[in-house]
Amino acid sequence: MTTERATSRQEGRKAGIKAYTSIAVVVVLAVAAWWFEPDWLYGWLKVLHIVAVISWMVGLFYLPRLFVYHADAEATGEPAATFVVMEQRLVKVIMNPAMMVSWVVGLWLAWSGFAFFGVWLWIKIAAVIGLTVFHVFLSRSARKFAAGRNSMTARQWRMANEIPTVLMILAVIMVIIKPFA
């Protein structure tokens, strides 16, 4: 019995190359813009930061949901194999690059816009550190799933799915309301 994959490894590699190439182009353009320091740079970096954060948050919300379904799937079945591919691509092609861009651009914005001044900013950074720790946990969990060593139930993954929501709400409150400014 032969099993066909919805997408091949080669297609996955091509998608990864496209994603990393796009990110590299954006980073090169950002560095060039920073070098010449045009008036519009700060606004466009804010746009880049928001897009990267949205992409990262989508992954932080979606990966635990995939784990819910994966935890309920038969470990040796075709759905489990499909979940492994989906989880690995989500982490490598979307989540990791989006997190990196979020951090790099976010730190630049914090430095150039606020000189890292303000309690609200440090609380926001703490929330982002929490999101990063959760990201690392999810990445390791994806590797465990791929190796057939998941130790959490679908119910536990549903509860874990609330962690990024709470941290995101905290970060948004700090940025928009700035309660300790």
Rank of each mutant, 00 (worst) to 15 (best):
M1Q: 04
R5H: 02
R5C: 03
T7S: 04
T7K: 11
R9T: 10
R9G: 06
Q10T: 07
Y20H: 13
Y20E: 03
T21S: 14
T21C: 13
A24V: 08
A24R: 13
V25R: 10
V26I: 14
V26Y: 12
V27Y: 07
V27N: 10
V28P: 08
L29D: 06
V31K: 14
A33C: 13
W35H: 15
D39K: 15
W40Q: 03
Y42P: 00
V47G: 00
H49F: 00
H49A: 02
H49D: 00
I50V: 11
V51D: 01
V51R: 00
V53C: 00
W56V: 03
L60F: 02
F61G: 11
F61D: 02
Y62P: 01
R65Y: 12
L66W: 04
F67Y: 05
F67K: 00
Y69M: 07
Y69I: 05
A71G: 05
D72K: 15
A73T: 02
A73M: 03
E74S: 07
A75D: 08
A75E: 15
T76L: 07
E78G: 07
P79V: 05
A80P: 00
F83K: 01
V84Y: 04
V84C: 05
V85I: 10
Q88S: 11
Q88C: 14
Q88M: 10
Q88H: 13
M95L: 13
N96E: 13
N96V: 15
N96T: 13
A98C: 14
M99C: 05
V101T: 03
S102P: 06
S102T: 14
G106P: 06
L107T: 05
W108N: 05
W108Q: 07
W108R: 06
A110Q: 07
W111Y: 12
S112A: 09
G113E: 03
F114C: 08
F114T: 06
A115H: 10
F116Q: 08
G118S: 11
W120C: 08
I125V: 11
A126F: 10
V128L: 15
L131V: 09
F137G: 10
F137E: 13
F137S: 10
L138D: 01
L138A: 03
S139I: 05
R140Y: 12
R140D: 10
S141W: 03
A142M: 04
K144T: 07
F145N: 10
G148Y: 03
R149A: 03
R149V: 00
S151K: 15
T153I: 05
Q156I: 04
W157F: 09
E162N: 15
E162L: 12
I163Y: 05
I163Q: 06
V166R: 11
V166E: 05
V166T: 08
L167K: 05
L170H: 10
V172I: 15
M174N: 09
I176P: 04
I176D: 06
A181Y: 07
